[in-house]
Simulated scan of single mutants.
Amino acid sequence: MGPLDATKPWQTKGIEGMNRFLGRAWRSVVGDDASTGSATGAPVYADEAAPEEIQKIMHQSIIKVSSDIENMSFNTAISQLMIFNNEMIKMDKRYREPCETFVKLLQPFAPHIAEEMWSILGHNESLTNVAWPEADASKAVENTVEVVFQVNGKLRAKANVAKDMDKAALEALAMANDRVKEFTNGKTVVKVIAVPGKLVNIVVK
């Protein structure tokens, strides 16, 4: 729908898109008869900690949605909820913490369906009286970074690596890359320039 203060035409497709999003949100939090995880059809929630990747997107979403609501940037807040939901759909089980956090973040935009989800999650108290989630900034930090592999200054490949990968490991990874090998096999490596977190440039002749 775009920024709140922007002029925009009315389009029913926007409503259809929101309906599809809420349908996906319902399936990821509550499920359907085929995916609830129990014989009775009632959803089963895992109380153990969710995988690190889910926790990261959860805390990123708390930060982003909270900021966007304060700035009345509701369209980008909803976009972040869509990103969060897409990651939740990939979960191997329904982890309680991300499910509950997602519902709390959804509540300002879709209060009725959020209240229904909250009830199914096992809560008797109205979501209106529940505290807004707080983010742990340390868990929202990206642990990987994209680096580029160059041969004679020309981009040949990219890879996602750990942010703290050292120069030696980065060089070895670049030299072992199949795409890089296409441009280095049979040639003499004159120099390898590695900048952790950014690039590896292999100079050959």
Rank of each mutant, 00 (worst) to 15 (best):
199 L>Y: 06
68 D>T: 01
122 G>E: 01
155 L>K: 14
145 V>S: 01
62 I>Y: 04
94 R>S: 10
136 D>T: 06
37 G>K: 00
94 R>H: 10
153 G>Q: 07
202 I>G: 10
151 V>W: 02
100 E>R: 11
144 T>C: 07
14 G>V: 01
26 W>D: 04
89 I>Y: 00
7 T>P: 05
138 S>C: 01
35 S>Y: 00
89 I>A: 12
60 Q>C: 06
135 A>P: 07
186 G>M: 12
180 V>P: 12
186 G>W: 07
27 R>T: 12
28 S>W: 00
135 A>G: 09
160 N>E: 15
179 R>E: 14
182 E>Q: 15
161 V>I: 15
41 G>N: 07
8 K>Q: 12
101 T>I: 15
104 K>L: 15
170 L>Q: 05
153 G>W: 03
134 E>A: 11
53 E>V: 05
22 L>Y: 02
76 T>Q: 04
88 M>D: 08
144 T>N: 13
83 I>L: 13
42 A>C: 06
111 P>V: 12
67 S>N: 09
203 V>K: 06
114 A>T: 07
173 L>E: 12
102 F>E: 03
83 I>A: 13
178 D>Y: 01
189 V>P: 09
8 K>N: 09
153 G>M: 08
155 L>W: 00
181 K>S: 10
145 V>G: 04
106 L>D: 02
138 S>P: 03
65 V>K: 02
99 C>D: 08
27 R>Y: 00
113 I>D: 05
16 E>Y: 06
58 M>D: 01
161 V>K: 01
139 K>H: 05
11 Q>E: 13
12 T>C: 04
90 K>I: 14
129 N>E: 12
45 Y>F: 15
179 R>D: 14
132 W>K: 07
172 A>Q: 13
85 N>Y: 02
96 R>W: 02
125 E>I: 13
